[in-house]
């Protein structure tokens, strides 16, 4: 698919309305997905994922939760077309992940912010739009909008090393949102941050999600983080990586940090923690 053939996304964010019922439209369908890796000696393959089935709704905030080695990042990479499943199928709006990637409909936030040290904050956020071939005027407007969204408007001319870890990760989120993607994929984005920064970013992320109404897939190994952020938590267990349970989080929205002190929140945390016992 050539650059010119790509249908440009609408560059206006649509705010989520919690008073409206959530969309029931299936955005991503994961059917019997399995991933095998050859081990270093090439003798016995390592089964990273086995028979994963999942349907993710449009506008949903879903977390993939599990211990190290359970295949949650592998699953996210398959959805992002950065890795190909060895069996099964993934469709996004009826299309393959490759088609969606080539249409530049993904925004990805990685474990590290992956900022280019030779670019200022503004130019880092601008990068995906350069790849999309957007005119400069549009790029400038969108950079301003996304930096305002993540609260970094006055840091646009700074270089990444001049920012704190939390601010760098917020730049990463702004960059992911810059092309107004349909899907926001987040791979343990806050795992390297301290608790205080992490909590602030949780609230910020929920605010951004509300403002943009994106479908978010969030990989984490932190149960509290998953419960606080998500509509549903997909619990994965290792050896081989598989979905062991899916927990609906029916906590009210919008959510504030005080929610973490409620018995309902703790009930969900305990329920999920218990599901890991014996794994």
């Amino acid at each position: 698919m050539t650059e010119k053939m790509i249908k440009q996304q609408d560059f206006e964010f649509v705010e989520k309305d919690f008073s409206e019922p959530a969309s029931t439209k299936i955005k991503i369908k994961i059917e019997n997905v399995g991933v095998k890796f050859q081990d270093k000696n090439g003798i016995e393959p390592v089964i990273a994922l086995k028979d994963v089935n999942l349907a993710i709704k449009e506008g949903e905030f879903i977390s993939l939760l599990g211990p190290s080695g359970c295949g949650k990042t592998t699953l996210l990479r398959c959805i992002a077309d950065l890795l190909h499943p060895t069996s099964g199928k993934i469709t996004i709006d009826g299309q393959s992940p490759r088609d969606i990637r080539l249409q530049k409909k993904f925004g990805i936030v990685f474990q590290s912010p992956v900022l280019y040290e030779w670019r200022t904050v503004r130019r880092n956020v601008c990068m995906p739009m350069e790849l999309l071939g957007l005119p400069k005027k549009e790029r400038t407007a969108m950079v301003t909008k996304t930096l305002e969204l993540v609260g970094l408007m006055e840091f646009g001319h700074k270089y990444p090393h001049e920012l704190s870890g939390g601010m760098q990760q917020r730049v990463g989120i702004a960059r992911a949102l810059a092309i107004n993607p349909e899907l926001l994929l987040m791979d343990e984005p806050f795992s390297a941050l301290d608790e205080f920064t992490k909590e602030k970013l949780h609230v910020d992320l929920l605010r951004i999600w509300r403002k943009t109404n994106k479908t978010i897939i969030f990989v984490t190994h932190n149960i509290q983080e998953a419960v606080f952020l998500s509509d549903r938590v997909v619990v994965l267990s290792p050896r081989p990586g598989r979905v062991s349970s899916v927990v609906d989080i029916k906590l009210p929205r919008p959510r504030a940090l005080s929610l973490k002190n409620t018995p309902e929140f703790n009930d969900y945390v305990i329920k999920i923690r218990n599901s890991f016992e014996g794994v």
């Binding site: 530049k104 990805i108 590290s112 280019y116 995906p128 790849l131």
Partner: peptide
């Protein structure tokens, strides 16, 4: 290269030249 930097560009459908 910094970790994930190639993945980031690939996620935006960047080719080898880009």
């Amino acid at each position: 290269l910094p970790p994930f930097s190639v993945d980031l560009l690939k996620s935006y459908a960047a080719g080898n030249f880009t």
